[in-house]
């Protein structure tokens, strides 16, 4: 469980990136943190594994204040996948890359071997085991970065902008993958402004603007609230936009999912 209690954060250059943020993320939650560029999303999630410590207020991870524990220790519990895989890949082979965190945490070789095999298999990277990560494509490098974090089997997984620069197929894979993580009762936090991606997953949405949380609730509630969404410089999902335009037909305006939309639409056609 992550508890953020009235956190303020100011960067050394004087920019106040968080201004009184409070939020609780329960075990097994699936949360999408959304908002425009510079809203403070990355700053907030960097507090979850102690990379940043609040200027004021506190952050508790499973009841432990992030001030009292090192990032390296928290990292066993909280896996953080950065936006750009090129910011972390440095080993000669994908295998070494995947075992880096495990070695840092001091696991035994046989356990490392097992975990690496498991993680590479999970992300369909087994064939690249002995390949240099620098030889892989962008999407594959992103998956290596993901594998290297998941290999240590953290309870909480944070993904910063996981869909940027990914084609539709890769996004779909990512979605299935998140579903898998959720089935394993993991807490998943994604940072994104990809409205369509979030609409397909229907997680809990936390909307941020200018260092504050302005809304918190299920995706089908938040993303269909036109005023809220535009205030955060986003647009409602396309399906919702259509339904909003068709509201004089008596159609509901809180639909975000294509399948649900189809059902609602067919029902209303039958009714008339």
């Amino acid at each position: 469980m992550i508890e953020v209690k009235d956190v303020y954060f100011t960067y050394p250059n004087g920019i106040g990136a968080l201004k009184g943020v409070s939020i609780t993320i329960q075990n097994g939650d699936f949360v999408a943190i959304m908002g425009q560029n510079g809203a403070g999303k990355t700053t907030l999630v960097k507090h979850f594994n102690g990379l940043l410590k609040p200027t004021k207020g506190k952050v508790l991870v499973d009841g432990v204040n992030t001030r009292d524990i090192s990032v390296a220790r928290l990292a066993r519990k909280v896996g953080f996948v950065f936006q750009n895989p090129d910011h972390q890949l440095f080993c000669e082979t994908v295998e070494d890359e995947t075992s880096f965190a495990l070695k840092n945490f001091g696991y035994k070789p046989n356990i490392i071997e097992r975990r690496v095999t498991w993680a590479l298999n999970l992300l369909s990277l087994t064939q690249y085991r002995k390949t240099s990560p620098f030889m892989l494509s962008g999407g594959e490098r992103k998956r290596v970065a993901l594998a290297s974090v998941l290999a240590s089997d953290p309870k909480i997984v944070i993904l910063d902008e996981p869909t940027i620069g990914q084609d539709h197929q890769q996004k779909e894979k990512l979605r299935q993958f998140i579903t898998q993580l959720r089935a394993q009762k993991k807490t998943v936090v994604i940072v994104t402004h990809d409205v369509e991606f979030v609409a397909e997953c229907n997680p809990r949405v936390v909307l941020m603007t200018e260092g504050k949380i302005v809304a918190d609730g299920r995706a089908n509630k938040i993303l269909t609230n036109y005023n809220l969404v535009t205030k955060a410089s986003l647009v409602p999902p396309q399906v919702t936009q259509i339904f909003m335009k068709l509201s004089d037909l008596g159609l509901p305006t809180n639909v975000i999912d294509v399948y649900e939309a189809r059902k609602v639409f067919l029902n209303s056609l039958e009714g008339s």
């Binding site: 990292a75 066993r76 972390q88 880096f100 965190a101 840092n104 974090v149």
Partner: peptide, 9 residues
Amino acid sequence: DAQKSRGLE
């Protein structure tokens, strides 16, 4: 930050 998140000290 990225490497610290993977347990680098």
